[in-house]
Design a protein around this nucleic acid. Structure first.
Ligand code: MN
Ligand code: MN
Ligand code: ZN
Ligand code: ZN
Lengths: 145, 145
DNA sequence: AATCTACATTATAACAATTCTAAACTGTTG
DNA sequence: CAACAGTTTAGAATTGTTATAATGTAGATT
């Protein structure tokens, strides 16, 4: 799903009919080098800009959830106002820029493995994810006060 | 705010009038040994059970936000469906039980300090929080398949 | 104690994100 | 080319949250 433009076959392979809406969404979502983090609204905006025909909001929700269910998108919880999604479906860490509300993926070199020393009886660990919140280091602005 | 029942003085000290709604909410929220994680709905339910008079939903929202602003509650983002709040306002890590949807605080002994090796130019780190998702270790259930 | 006023509570409306519904449409199979 | 299951769609419904504006009240002022 990460390679080039034959999303039609890829969708079929997932048991999803390759409608033009889905193919367009694949292009927007998966035809890129880097991880993409987005909200439904971001996505609707991008699609309507790139497309001459309009795509229904319901379809965007439907398709995002279909891709999520198939394991090609992952929901990321940053803030309870709205859902974020991520084309990087692995367990991974994030930086979150509180000024720009931008998410940045970490790779293995960015954060050392997290050492969990507690275990909860009868429970196994499914994921360990770190969220690092950053904001502008406003030394300059402080001087203004 | 964590001690006993003279919340009236404590509220006044914060510049908040000690109305009976606020005092009741203090009792529910802060009269406990351990950290308390809750949603607005949890709280409304608990209050209406403990109280003979009813309290307005708007007041619960107002008061939770007032306490948050004063630094006695912290919003925790677990899931984008609804907001969670935490009586532990420090930067700290959580275990999240995906079966019971329960949050458990970590203390310093539970997780080693997280070593962040990346820095983003012009940005400073405001917080580093780990979310460990756990679920029942269902070896037994697997045998049933 | 009565009055005053800024702050609080309340019911309800408004709102935004998301999900549901049911009718119209379309990709696929035979 | 049917026929059918899966898909899209507009709009309604639902949910969590915030705004509004009328009423109530804590605490100060007289
Ligand atoms: Mn928030
Ligand atoms: Mn969710
Ligand atoms: Zn990511
Ligand atoms: Zn906590």
């Amino acid at each position: 799903m990460v390679k080039n433009c034959n999303f039609i076959e890829k969708l079929r392979g997932l048991g999803l009919r390759p409608t033009k809406q889905r193919v367009k969404m694949c292009e927007v979502l998966f035809n890129r080098e880097k991880t993409f983090h987005f909200t439904i609204n971001d996505l609707v905006k991008m699609i309507s800009e790139e497309m001459n025909e309009k795509i229904s909001l319901a379809t965007v929700y439907n398709t995002v959830h279909a891709f999520e269910k198939k394991g090609y998108l992952k929901e990321i919880t940053i803030n309870s106002d709205k859902s974020y999604f991520d084309t990087n479906t692995s367990v991974h860490h994030h930086f979150y820029d509180e000024d720009t509300h931008e998410l940045i993926d970490c790779d293995e070199n960015d954060i050392d493995p997290v050492n969990i020393k507690k275990n909860i009886t009868g429970k196994k660990i499914n994921s360990v994810e770190v969220l690092v919140k950053v904001a502008s280091d406003n030394q300059n602005q402080k001087k203004l006060n």
